[in-house]
Nucleic acid binder design. Structure first.
Length: 266
DNA sequence: CTAAAATCCTGGTGGC
DNA sequence: TGCCACCAGGATTTTA
């Protein structure tokens, strides 16, 4: 599942092949994945050049020369790659963008959860998002302030992109392990020292994962990252905790799995 | 306002 | 071997 480190890795890889190049067409294989419609994409996208590519949370944002923004969310199983137009296609290619230089940007997504937006006003998509955990100016004090009037359990809260962006099920579990906090703890019961530890843990886990070019899982399209080798708790049910040897537990929390060490996390 | 459940999707898996 | 129920989860929508 592409989370912040995977999207960041993909963004960095797309800059060289895309920036300065111009879209010449688009083919949509699954209508529900684009907004606006495929018809409108075909009318508006051709002729627009990619001027910059950024990441905001788990969204990939391409600034285009025609004042539009092409915004893509990979959700669970999406992946993007640039290939020559005559390279063999893939069964799960859902949206294929033609470029004037003879290449294609291909959005592959077996589960069809991904989304493609074209808009001249990205605010309606991006404005609700919480702070970027790795920004230099995202301070410990700002993180502490996020807990105002928050009473739900900490794990679902970390997954809420309006609270803070970038964490998905993997890195939320890993950050909570590093901070020594149980996923089912109520947010308003965390001590200030625990919140400070969680702030550091989130930034450490995400930065290390970016350094490893993200995580590659067997049932997902995204490949190349190595962070799965660093998992301390995620997908390690009944395996020994790397700190104390206790069996890692897996529970369900907010319709998601949560992994933790019952001894090291309180 | 916040919290939590339901929803969208398909490929892989385990049980029989 | 085939069939089928079930599981994985990011973000939006619905419900409380």
């Amino acid at each position: 599942m592409p989370e912040l480190p995977e999207v960041e890795t993909i963004v960095r890889g797309l800059r060289a092949p895309l920036i300065g190049h111009t879209f010449s067409g688009v083919r949509v294989e699954w209508e529900r994945m684009t907004q606006p419609s495929a018809r409108e994409l075909r009318a508006r996208l051709p002729g627009q050049r990619v001027e910059a590519i950024h990441r905001r949370g788990k969204y990939l944002v391409m600034q285009l020369s025609g004042k539009d923004n092409l915004i893509i969310h990979l959700k669970m199983t999406g992946d993007l790659e640039v290939l020559p137009a005559d390279a063999p296609g893939h069964q799960h290619d859902r949206v294929v963008f033609d470029l004037e230089n003879g290449n294609q940007l291909r959005f592959r997504d077996p589960r069809k959860f991904g989304r493609v937006y074209l808009t001249d006003d990205p605010a309606w998509i991006l404005d609700r998002l919480g702070p970027e955990p790795l920004d230099d100016d995202f301070t410990e004090g700002e993180f502490l302030a996020l807990f105002d009037r928050r009473s739900g359990r900490i794990k679902p809260l970390l997954l809420n992109q309006e609270f803070i962006v970038g964490l998905g099920n993997i890195y939320a579990d890993e950050a909570l392990f590093l901070a020594g906090v149980r996923p089912e703890r109520k947010a308003d019961t965390l001590l200030e020292a625990e919140k400070r530890g969680l702030y550091r843990a989130i930034r450490q886990v995400l930065q290390l994962a970016i350094d490893q070019k993200g995580t590659s899982l067997a049932d997902e399209t995204y490949r190349g990252g190595q962070y799965q080798r660093q998992f301390k708790v995620y997908d390690r049910r009944e395996e020994p905790c790397p700190k104390c040897g206790s069996p890692i537990q897996r529970i369900r929390l907010g319709q998601r799995s949560a992994h933790f060490c019952p001894n090291c996390q309180r």
